[in-house]
Write a protein that binds this DNA or RNA. Sequence first.
DNA 1: CCTATTCTTTCAAATTTCTTACAAATCTAT
DNA 2: ATAGATTTGTAAGAAATTTGAAAGAATAGG
Lengths: 224, 224
Amino acid sequence: MNVLIVEDEKSLSDEIVVFLKSEGYLCEQAFTGADASEKIAINLYDFVLLDLGLPDCDGLDIINNDRAWGSEPAFIIITARGEVQDKVKGLDLGADDYIAKPFALTELAARMQAVGRRKFKIPGQDMNVGEFVIEFQSRKVTHNDNEVLLTRKEFDLLNYLVINRNKVLTRQQLYEHIWGNILEDQYDSNFIDVHIKNVRRKLNEFASTPWLETVRGIGYRVSF
Amino acid sequence: MNVLIVEDEKSLSDEIVVFLKSEGYLCEQAFTGADASEKIAINLYDFVLLDLGLPDCDGLDIINNDRAWGSEPAFIIITARGEVQDKVKGLDLGADDYIAKPFALTELAARMQAVGRRKFKIPGQDMNVGEFVIEFQSRKVTHNDNEVLLTRKEFDLLNYLVINRNKVLTRQQLYEHIWGNILEDQYDSNFIDVHIKNVRRKLNEFASTPWLETVRGIGYRVSF
DNA sequence: CCTATTCTTTCAAATTTCTTACAAATCTAT
DNA sequence: ATAGATTTGTAAGAAATTTGAAAGAATAGG
């Protein structure tokens, strides 16, 4: 999961980054509204943590700007105490949650998880795909209680495909969300194909996986 | 992708054209509001870059004209600094993004990409055509839960026809939008006919498709 | 420093896309 | 109505693209 932290106070921003990284998120920072707008326009984030007290612009513009369909990020507003009407306006504009300063990092994590569950339909509980059970919390995949040992990227890949089930994901989308980078022009490597192949190989030792489909010319899709 | 650049300052317009062509876009220019309106009425553009400082009319009128659902172009407003309320009015009227003069061409490209990503990913929901269900996000076509296996171009073709349903699309329009190239003069190949035939053949294995019509002398149309 | 993971490179296999040639259908002008 | 012209449909196969697979190099993490 990709997170953009929009917060002008560097020390707080850094603190959040360190924490979220330890939680397994990919983080980027923006310290001004202009920077944030540009980054959001270019990258596909899953979350945007937005401090409304930016010096150069009204943070609410940023939400208003980018109303994407399906792949829009989840906005979580960070407010100082007392900016209540901003909070309300933010929620009206389509922010998904807010959190008031000062906050505990664990609370932030909890809210992000809750928002993610609603917004991206990330199942809180385990999920059945084919004959497999995916445990998102413990990052385990099992087949009749036998664990399928996937590496980190392999699990991330499967995880992201399952969350976006019944959607074709391009290699670029997978790359941007799981690796958290923009894919440069003309970059041709088939490492995503390789990971897919490895996931399939490991899963196929237990059962066939026709639900992990190749959509030729586009990307991959999990259907169920 | 087709772009109409509506900008009265010729040197800037030309500069944009040269750049966008190098990025693989097909460009046309309009230097007056009247010209722009006419061109938009006739052609199917993917993007319209609209300078609000036109001499002969309020650029915002151009956006306001009613457009067919699905086939409307993405409007990106070009404003001079300080025309903030125009920007706001533009976004209210349905513009998809704005960019303030002076801007870097790379930023324009980034915004067009971002807008394109969300705009042309097509309806979030599935759609019924005849006895078939088209799932756009999944790029699947089904008939009573049986999947009709279409290749990429076949799906793109059906997709574009369905989005522009009740409109006749010429082979040139289909080619320019789906293949993203200008069709050279006197280029005669019937590969679009061939793809249409293949789509029909695959669909007809499940049910007849009188709704995928040939408009003799013009092109093809999906009516429903 | 060692090991597991991730990425790159290479090539074969599978599939799609486009071209070509011709048949069938439709239109136009006598 | 019919011949000729134009347009569309069909088939087969060549060319191009895309994916799968294997092996090994680079990298990261303990």
